[in-house]
């Protein structure tokens, strides 16, 4: 679990259009370009934002990649994955 590579991948998936397209086409193949371990790949593919934050990834990036790439993009789901019952609806970085 290397924070630097995880953050590079999540930054790409938050803001880079080419990366977003390639990830959507074939997530596993896209991630194979990076020196990630099996657990790193699992965290990203399963949108395990809690584990990613515990690995040191900035919450701004877990939020950005969630909003851009997750299946339902709902903040309520994001909050549940973090172990929070927060009902706030704002779905953007602040």
């Amino acid at each position: 679990m290397k924070r630097d590579v995880l953050e590079r991948v999540l930054w790409n998936l938050s803001v880079d259009r080419f990366s977003k397209v390639k990830f959507k086409e074939n997530p596993t193949q896209y991630l194979s370009r990076f020196p990630l371990g099996a657990e790193d790949v699992r965290m990203i593919l399963e949108f395990d934002v809690k584990a990613l934050q515990e690995a040191g990834v900035s919450p701004l990036l877990t939020l950005g990649y969630w909003i851009e790439m997750s299946p339902d993009r709902q903040m309520s789901t994001y909050n549940k994955k973090l172990g929070s019952e927060s009902g706030y609806s704002g779905s953007i970085k602040g």
Binding site: P59, L60, L82, S84, S86, Y88, G94
Partner: peptide
């Protein structure tokens, strides 16, 4: 005060 992207958000 605000918590961004963390479980304390809100």
């Amino acid at each position: 005060s605000h918590w961004v992207g963390t479980k304390e958000s809100g």
